[in-house]
Amino acid sequence: MFPSRFDYVAPDTVEEVLATLAQHGDEAKILAGGQSLIPLMKLRFASPGLLVDVNRVPGLGFVEETGEHLRVGTLTRNTELERSALLKSGYPVMADAAPMISDPLVRNRGTIGGSLAHADPAGDWGSVMLALGAEVVIKSSTDERTIPVSELLVNTFTTSLDPTEMITEIRVPKTPARSGGSYLKMERRVGDFATVATAVHLTLDNGTIKRAGIGLTAVGSKNLQASAAEDALAGAEPTAEAFEEAARLAAEASSPSSDVRGSAEYKKAMVRTFVRRGLDKALELARG
């Protein structure tokens, strides 16, 4: 497997990266972890004219809580997220998801920002961020904007990013006390893309559900937010019936296609099962 020719730059600063993107537009492609991009280039399914390697830009990999947010640098490797004590204690849906991404060696390279920008409907981080109500900070040489992940993900492998922009940071609202979450993924083996995966985040307030976030992986043209299910849970008692109804609504919101992993009917049923199980697990954690 031998990729086509391309030009390569490896800037040292975000400014240089953005200037290069501004100059080359859609001829240029950002190279972060490369674990999705490089295989596509080897298969010659992708042939960018210029690769802008951001791996030499310092300061793009971090996980920290500041102010109202958990801030995650775009270049943070999945392995770092998998091992992060902060995520384990405060952001269980993220802590669950990180080790389920691809395999350990791929996680050593793959980054959270790269995964979001790739916008694979079977990608894991999009659903997790939807469940958490996260935002991304996006920069270009002339502008900076912060948008919810729900506005980032447009369609299969399509985001609202302009070719001159790059994601620099992910901002997750700090989880209040009495929060819990889970990421449940069905894969045929380690390294497989999800047959179905569900991200759930719950916050309780005096025994009722203050906020519920539900993201769905691999059951639509992009990572899906199960809004109807979230709305049904908001303000409700966390009962088995409420969870079952939310699971039903989430399954209804999914639009999977049939393939070797299973029929659409099966995948919908699994969304239902996994959302229900995920809510149970999240509730247990939220109750502490």
């Binding site: 390569y8 490896a10 190279l31 490369g34 295989p39 080897k42 050593n108």
Partner: peptide, 19 residues
């Protein structure tokens, strides 16, 4: 194709040598 890159195992078929 696994090698250790700065101590961590990576798949060297999915990295350009320039990296």
């Amino acid at each position: 194709c696994t090698v250790l890159l700065d101590g961590s195992p990576v798949k060297s078929c999915t990295l350009f040598a320039v990296q």
